[in-house]
């Protein structure tokens, strides 16, 4: 059963890779597609996560992926304010994760 699922996943992955390389579109979209799929995998984990801690991990990783998004937008559209957004997002996502972890531990925010 597990081997079957692995093979289905491999076929899906190779199919999506070939589609990404052959279908007519701009370089920005070609580079962005893997990140969008990664974000959907994160959202899947946030949706089904059996414990609250799994959901917190998903939110943390989603924040780091968005930094990658901002970087790629900046380099392909030549607007360098996207990098400023990425730096601000890195610091803000760190603080929000610390707050969520504290909440998970069962302490108040001002302790």
């Amino acid at each position: 059963m597990r081997t079957l699922r692995w093979i289905i996943g491999l076929i899906l992955f190779v199919g999506l890779l070939i589609l990404n390389l052959t279908v007519e579109m701009s370089t920005l979209l070609r580079v962005l597609n893997p990140l969008i799929i990664s974000c959907f995998l994160c959202l899947w984990r946030i949706g089904i996560g059996p414990t609250p801690a799994d959901r917190v991990v998903g939110i943390d990783i989603l924040g780091i992926l968005i930094i990658g998004f901002c970087g790629i937008f900046a380099v392909f559209t030549k607007y360098d304010f996207f990098i400023d957004i990425a730096i601000a997002w890195a610091l803000q996502s760190f603080i929000s994760t610390i707050a969520l972890a504290k909440f998970l531990e069962g302490r108040a925010f001002d302790e």
């Binding site: 801690a53 917190v56 991990v57 943390d60 969520l100 998970l104 531990e105």
Partner: peptide
């Protein structure tokens, strides 16, 4: 790494 460490410690304590 610091945020990952915070999540892991909080989850283990919880």
């Amino acid at each position: 790494p610091v945020s990952a460490h915070a999540i892991a410690r909080a989850a283990h304590i919880a």
